[in-house]
Design a binder for these strands. Structure first.
Lengths: 148, 148
DNA sequence: GACGGTTCGACAACCAGGTTGTCGAACACG
DNA sequence: CGTGTTCGACAACCTGGTTGTCGAACCGTC
């Protein structure tokens, strides 16, 4: 079974992420939101959370502003975000999450929570809380620094 | 701090994987193995483990044989794998992990174990073992099925 | 008020790692 | 011997990133 090797742990972490995302994306599609990618969800959340320009979104997601612009283009295409001229700064386009966008993030959030809930039932709520807390501890404390 | 939301859990899982891989790849480069990608490590391990043809490697990694062939080409380029004619089957090219390849996987394995060891010191060995076991349980039991 | 540096968004080229589809050659077998 | 399968190769394409360059707009300073 699990061999307690570092490489196995890495694969388990990746597998866990993929399992969650795969399920959420599939269910989103079933509920009227086809074409959504995992990255879209998180980006839309960031926009809703105040990242109202491409450059700012890039900073939040720690990707280049060009990559952020591509994501925004996709979100706009899907009708999740609107780009409007900024009256105060002619360079900027102000990003606004549409109603449909809000609907999608709400569903997505709920779906992620559902998966988590199922996992909690499967291995025990306390155990999953503990797992998540330990992971959080590992990723916030020491080295493991992201791009400066 | 950790909000115990499903989406947060997903990001933690991904973050954990990326943190491990990033560190291992960086250290591999420092130890004389530049240009190695995470996928290379796992692929090389699979080859060493008996996947001695492109098609077979594709099956093991659950990707198309074309994708596997690309990975093999990269590994050959880097000197980690050699392709030789199969005397018993003129269609096949037998894959063989070179000495340098074995060196790389050994170092990589050790580096993954080192990261895991550091994590174990950080949150406690029993706790990390538990985390890994729970994750394994989540990903092997119920739905979460991979491509058939 | 003009100037220099910074920021914004756009565009192009590129890369990695996948995909599908097609192909010819080699093999396996009834 | 023919038929079906498997192997590796090749081409075209997608996704999600990257870097570099650009003009336009903004801001601070002299």
């Amino acid at each position: 079974m699990s061999e307690r090797r570092g490489a196995d742990l890495a694969l388990l972490l990746l597998g866990g992420f993929e399992a969650m995302v795969e399920e959420v994306v599939a269910e989103l599609e079933r509920r009227g939101h086809p074409g959504v990618r995992a990255a879209h969800e998180f980006a839309l959340r960031a926009i809703d959370d105040g990242a109202d320009s491409a450059a700012e979104l890039g900073r939040r997601l720690e990707v280049s502003k060009q990559a952020a612009a591509k994501t925004i283009a996709a979100l706009e295409q899907l009708g999740y975000v609107a780009r409007e001229d900024d009256p105060a700064d002619a360079r900027r386009k102000r990003l606004r999450v549409t109603d449909r966008g809000h609907e999608m993030t709400a569903i997505g959030q709920a779906l992620f929570d559902e998966v988590r809930e199922r996992w909690a039932r499967q291995i025990g709520r306390a155990e999953l809380d503990e797992l998540q807390a330990q992971l959080g501890r590992l990723l916030t404390t020491p080295s493991s620094r992201r791009r400066p």
